[in-house]
Design a protein around this nucleic acid. Sequence first.
DNA 1: TTGAAAGCGCTAACAG
DNA 2: CTGTTAGCGCTTTCAA
Lengths: 334, 334
Amino acid sequence: MQRVTIMDVAARAELSPSTVSLYFRKPDAVSAAASEAIARAIEALDYVPNLMAGGLAAASSRVVSIIVPSVRNAFFAETVTALQDELGKQRLQVMLSHTEYKEHDEENLVRTALSWAPAAVVLTGLSHSAATRRLLRDSKVPVVEIWELGSPTMDMAVGFHHDQVGHAAASHLLQRGRKRLLFLGARLHEDRRAARRAQGFVEAARNAPDVTAEIIQHPAPASAEVGAMLLGEALHRFPNVDGIACSNDHIALGVIFECQRSGVAIPERLSVMGFGDLSFSAAANPSLTTIRPPGDLIGKEAARLIIARLAHLGAEPEQAVIDTRFTLLHRQSS
Amino acid sequence: MQRVTIMDVAARAELSPSTVSLYFRKPDAVSAAASEAIARAIEALDYVPNLMAGGLAAASSRVVSIIVPSVRNAFFAETVTALQDELGKQRLQVMLSHTEYKEHDEENLVRTALSWAPAAVVLTGLSHSAATRRLLRDSKVPVVEIWELGSPTMDMAVGFHHDQVGHAAASHLLQRGRKRLLFLGARLHEDRRAARRAQGFVEAARNAPDVTAEIIQHPAPASAEVGAMLLGEALHRFPNVDGIACSNDHIALGVIFECQRSGVAIPERLSVMGFGDLSFSAAANPSLTTIRPPGDLIGKEAARLIIARLAHLGAEPEQAVIDTRFTLLHRQSS
DNA sequence: TTGAAAGCGCTAACAG
DNA sequence: CTGTTAGCGCTTTCAA
């Protein structure tokens, strides 16, 4: 596969391989004349460095391993994109894996990830098996946990508190004068962050006087169809419901469609809100009140932490925890 | 980073390193007794193989590099997920990159990908720069082009013909008795596959008697908001329009919402169809007629081709081209 | 600023 | 089925 090596480049530039190596790693430490000769040789030979050889010799690669529940989830897709963009600027490569919400698989994925002696590992959420923690601790690789804040943190963390999202949703509905509240959730048993939002919602609601709050859930992944079904169940079981928060915008969209079909007026009779601010939410009819998690920012900040850590590898690692917060977008549906 | 090596494992199992190596690469070629001893040693030492060393020695890694326009796009997310699942079963790792529809970046991404001596490279679409083609040809790495069929193919390809999608959409609307057709598209200048769908649509429509067909487009990425805007423009410029095909379901969703707001009856006055069968399409009100591209299947087939090629590395490489087709889902909106 | 030398941890003939 | 022996292509002291 690899034909041209650093030796070939060195020979053509009439320099030693170590100088060429230095040219790649610390360009400033090489004289202008040498740099130019090397650049010319690379060009002429169409040299492609072998990063595996480099990683092996350096005992560490420029790979950042990212493990998310699913890329099909728009939230994580956004974060992965941002991470990739920011890390790419530093010539760091992303190696992606997904657990499909099977936390049990994470350990194997981490083990494989470590086989590449990654420069850093990015994990979603805070709940990881003891073995996973040990593996990562022993490897001494920088770790960033994303999309969830709380305790305990392994190393660095970037995200927000999901119970606060639940609180914010409940507060908003209460403020709109709603008293019979429902949280509609999908796959709450697997999606711990959604479950925490649900919990936070119910807690906050029940602290208010004369307010009831319940959770209705469905085991399937979130989708508009599940949302429509959940609304049906909600109306059946709690005919007086006047405020609904959904575990995400897909569910909320299904609720909107189902309300249209059943003639339930939003927001007059029922206030609806979602989570995610997905691409359709602002354009919906009525437009959807929702809470926007800063998926992009999470990726950017995680990348920043990694890059900073890599820059001060010798120094005392600082255990950064970044709360990115979230934003409530009040629109027509409430 | 890496402490425990294959030598440590060998020592503890009282075998030679090469036997341990064999144990990983060809488990069947190792005796049961040896296997057990090795397994025990691995367990006891918590051994994590160094894949870079392995890749260097073998002159090829178990990395498959995938380059897509964007993971935020549900289509590619689905394919990437399937690829990852299938490749993972063979202990092949996915290294993901995105071009954000800047074809110009692809060459650099391919160059970097090749630095890892990947087992295969997966590219989206068929249009690649001459330099990219040369790089890949010289590297002799298996290449799979996905999500588009046509000519020319570099090596292997899995996808479908996007002009056929356009044809199918036009035929469907014509069959429903529609005569004043419009294709609403987003970012057609960057998304070549959407552009080909638009072309196919117009071509097929104009072949029918008494039928008109036009394309209206917007430079921004596809979203429901863009869809709503495009419908406004469509109604303004072509008040008689009775059939609309959209470059994807996001656009179509925006069209549905905007029609609700403007009191345009779907499908009575206007037939609407999309492309993608996204998660909300079946639950929409009215439910959305759409064309479903087999994103998952594309990933699975691409993985299958890669695995097959890897299994017969010596043999004459067969230039597989797989047409996955697509499915028209007739629902209420038409 | 550049070069020589010694591996990094593993695979891959080949021999036994 | 197992062991011996050379590297894979690069980085990294250490000297010059």
